[in-house]
Write a protein that binds this DNA or RNA. Structure first.
Lengths: 360, 360
DNA sequence: TTGTAGGCGTTATCAG
DNA sequence: CTGATAACGCCTACAA
């Protein structure tokens, strides 16, 4: 008795994993019965179940994930396609990843990170064919994305964060850029701004068909026109320097400007710096409205940025949930969810007071 | 012929995974031979190998990761213990995670993210006992960390990012806070500052034995004393607000202060804001030196922060490499590497010019 | 140089 | 309600 106990204890401490066979032996039942008791796949007598569970306890038993996956053809792993960008990922993405990992855990799944270059379909194919994961959540989707095409063809279950140009039947969760940008324009218009600008990500990202760049650009043109505002748009590299260098050009070309919407966190900081350095004030002379930039960054600038902040955590959670629903439920409704960014008022926007054309 | 070809094509496209048996059949060899050819575990005739590889190509064969792991008892998965903090993770951590994921991929491993609350040893135990991963890289290590204790006991291979209080035999990669802080103090001293302060993370983090908080605090006291500087230290919550609120108290209590070292990204932004709002200038009146805060944030403040920036990517890469070395190499030397933060000069530090005690 | 066969720890299909 | 016993896809002695 005490000997057995000793062994069990040893097993637990040393991590010499106990198998189902061990549990079965100790509970005096067949392995299959242990399996059934574990998964509730088949009714098991109360007394038997009790014995089995006690044996598991005593042995510190945990089912082997690999064996389980091999036998059931369901690994309970999902992958997060984690784009390998030169420019690196931001805080928004970090929030997203955290939420995804947490959600996966809660639902009994493991999240594996596949760091892959954006265009590398081959690598992705090789990875998915290893049978390690049951499906994937894919980030940074482009309007015309070869990776999505490949996932569709090969029948790998997936959920997009973002979306392609034409989405027929594929599940996704994305920011509602249309409504967000409309709200942003309305915010400035409501403050009396008559000439507003839009500072986008780089031209390269737009040309590559990066969803946010393209959708926001279109949405801005439309919303500004509908509001009867004078307006202009600019592409800008994702760096403070680029933003700083662009500002003088903007004021020169658009003398009437009093407000800008910036969907480029890093460039936004540069714009802010350029304005202050020029001797102008924010928001008295110029309003700067940040879109889809992280809380943490927005509150660190001077002045703190009024911002439409992205639902990163919601997207992460949703993406994983939707994917797992598809993996488990046989026929689940198609989820294609758009979530708008939420306005957080800080100190970088205010009534338009600067006289158009007045010197700065 | 064309029929077979057709099937192969179909298999590849539809993802109906081909197994080793399929390859063996097509190449007219035994499964074991395929295995040997694949892993180079045993010499295989050139012609045979060729046939096998061709068959693999044609079938789009990829070895099944689960089966391989089950049979070999090596999953080629490693986990990243990804702390679930209320306050969330920052850009530095994001860089770290990216590098870890990338490195794992390069070395033929998968990185799985285990989002676990800091104290939850039980959860961690359950996870490691599933046999899904061969080892773990563990972040946010505390001086007295129950998780490490548990990993040691259960014999799970691991590598720490950070380190516990007394490290005998455990591999780690960590920031060299001692030398970094010494350099930081020297930087300010060299600029002529005679009274300097240190703004740490929260008292809670210090009391919890969070390595960076504790080591940096000690290092600062020592370095400042050795340099013959007047000095003081403060704990501060990780938020701009906390930093902003703390500043007036500091100036009141330490009238001679001309420079502060801030190891708290978010509080640092608040301090900067408070100084500017008070009408003082940075760096003319006060120098603000940021330690271990991310590039991306430092360049976005106004003025851009001079900073000792953390080797996040190196740590991520190193942590994974060291772990995998241990998993593969039988007897590898113990790696316990400290990497200092690197000084990046920006605009927030300069010569001490303010007259001590002069009004601001 | 190659083939045969047992085993890795589950699940799931048979019977009882 | 429960027990045997094939798979699952691969690795690795042991034989030939």
């Amino acid at each position: 008795m005490s000997l057995t106990c000793g062994f069990a204890w040893l097993d637990v401490e040393v991590g010499m994993m106990a198998s189902m066979a061990d549990v079965a032996r100790r509970a005096n039942v067949a392995v299959s019965t242990v399996s059934y008791a574990l998964n509730g796949t088949r009714p098991v007598a109360k007394a038997t179940a009790e014995r089995i569970h006690r044996a598991m306890e005593e042995l510190g038993y945990r089912p082997n994930a690999l064996a389980r996956g091999l036998a059931s053809k369901r690994s309970r792993n999902i992958a997060l396609i984690f784009p390998m960008l030169e420019r690196g990922l931001g805080l928004t993405e970090m929030e997203f990843v955290s939420a995804a990992a947490e959600t996966a855990g809660e639902l009994g799944y493991h999240l594996v990170l596949w760091s892959t270059p954006l265009g590398d379909t081959d690598l992705l194919t090789r990875l998915t064919r290893q049978g390690l994961v049951d499906g994937v959540v894919i980030m940074e989707v482009h309007l015309d994305d070869a990776r999505i095409e490949m996932l569709r063809r090969t029948g790998v279950p997936f959920c997009m964060i973002g979306r392609t140009g034409e989405n027929r039947e594929d599940p996704f969760a994305d920011i509602d850029f249309e409504s967000t940008i409309r709200d942003a324009v309305a915010h400035l218009a409501g403050l009396g701004h008559r000439t507003v600008g839009f500072i986008n990500h780089s031209r390269a990202s737009f040309d590559a068909g990066y969803g946010p760049s393209v959708r926001a650009a279109r949405a801005f043109e439309e919303a500004a026109r509908d509001s009867g505002l004078r307006h202009f748009s600019r592409f800008c590299d994702d760096s403070p320097t680029a933003g700083r260098e662009m500002w003088p050009e903007i004021v020169a070309a658009q003398p009437g400007v009093t407000g800008v919407i910036v969907m480029n966190e890093r460039a936004g900081a540069g714009v802010l710096a350029a304005i202050l350095r020029s001797g102008a004030r924010v928001p008295e002379d110029f309003s700067v409205l940040s879109v889809a930039s992280s809380e943490r960054v927005a509150e660190m600038t001077y002045p703190p940025l009024t911002t439409f902040h992205p639902p990163a955590a919601e997207l992460g959670r949703l993406g994983v949930q939707v994917l797992i629903d598809r993996l488990e439920g046989g026929e689940v409704p198609l989820v294609q969810q758009l979530i708008p960014c939420r306005l957080v008022l800080r100190d970088s926007t205010g009534p338009a007071t600067r006289q158009p054309g007045a010197g700065i």
